[in-house]
């Protein structure tokens, strides 16, 4: 039985499916799921304990998802997307198929992004549902609330893609990508986001926060955090532009790096 090589879409789909399957079978998913259940739990506690739950939630939720959860989840999934296959020496199986390396790398990033975004969106859905619950599910996912919900989910997906690409790229460049990515997260994404002034622009989470709907970023002077500053009307557009450029650059860099990646590391010592 001979083939003529899979089409790009078929190959991409197969790689994405394999990546999703691989991530869903990792043991660390249990730990990540527990972490993801924290925001819904906190939302629930806010609802039960506080009479002013909504006001607290609009401060808590964007931070929880865009500054902490999405980056952390993406880092674990992105760093392992390619690196785990290199470590397990299974990448060789994919490289021996008649499919381009771009498709392999892109498929892995898309697969990891889908898993990350799906888990984060699911967690956000729970939080959203708990906070806006008025006795039935209908009003929670309709009208302005639905638009707000979908917009946040879109931002979560975009954020996932950026952080997954970033950490996947790191995994091709350095030996300890997860550690490096966590360091970056602590110093830049969290550190800079809470420093008022231009330094905040270095954090992708700041840019992502500026894309949030007004209802979720209307509180101005909360702990002086740059991420909560009331954005002028043009800022979301600038933030989106910057994020687009960053996404493009990261993707191109990742594909170029993967194209020239060889499995020397796995053969060294065996020769």
């Amino acid at each position: 039985m001979r083939g003529s090589g899979p089409g790009t879409i078929t190959a991409l789909w197969l790689i994405v499916a394999m990546q999703i399957r691989a991530l869903l079978r990792r043991k660390r998913l249990i730990f990540l799921t527990l972490v993801l259940l924290l925001p819904p739990f906190v939302s629930f506690m806010m609802k039960v304990e506080s009479g002013n739950a909504l006001e607290s939630w609009v401060i808590f939720a964007p931070q929880a998802y865009l500054v902490f959860l999405v980056p952390i989840l993406s880092i674990f999934h992105g760093a392992s997307a390619i690196a785990d296959e290199v470590d397990d020496r299974t990448l060789g199986y994919l490289l021996m198929r008649p499919i381009s390396r771009d498709v392999i790398a892109f498929g892995k990033v898309v697969g990891a992004t889908l898993v990350t975004a799906a888990l984060a969106c699911f967690s956000f859905s729970l939080s959203h549902q708990l906070i806006y619950w008025r006795g039935s599910i209908g009003p929670v996912f309709s009208g302005d609330l639905l638009a707000q919900y979908l917009r946040v989910c879109g931002i979560i997906c975009w954020g996932s893609l950026i952080y997954v690409s970033f950490s996947a790229l790191l995994s091709l460049l350095i030996r300890w990508p997860t550690m490096a990515a966590i360091l970056y997260l602590a110093l830049v994404e969290i550190g800079c986001a809470y420093v008022p002034g231009p330094l905040a622009g270095a954090a992708m989470s700041t840019r992502l926060m500026r894309l949030l709907p007004p209802g979720l970023r209307s509180i101005e002077d909360v702990i002086g955090a740059e991420v909560f500053r009331e954005a002028p009307p043009r800022e979301p557009v600038i933030a989106a532009g910057v994020l687009l450029v960053v996404t493009g650059l990261l993707t191109i860099w990742l594909l170029r790096r993967f194209r020239s990646h060889d499995l020397s590391g796995t053969a060294e010592g065996d020769q």
């Binding site: 001979r2 003529s4 899979p6 078929t10 197969l14 691989a22 299974t90 060789g92 021996m96």
Partner: peptide, 30 residues
């Protein structure tokens, strides 16, 4: 398309069974 490799490493997608593994590799081979 014209080259096959059986490498020396004892590496697999361990959770797959043989049929699924070969099937996946065959689909990726077109």
């Amino acid at each position: 398309l014209q080259v096959g490799l059986c490498n020396q490493y004892d590496c697999f997608y361990e959770d797959l069974n043989a049929v699924d593994f070969i099937m996946a590799m065959a689909r990726l081979a077109g």
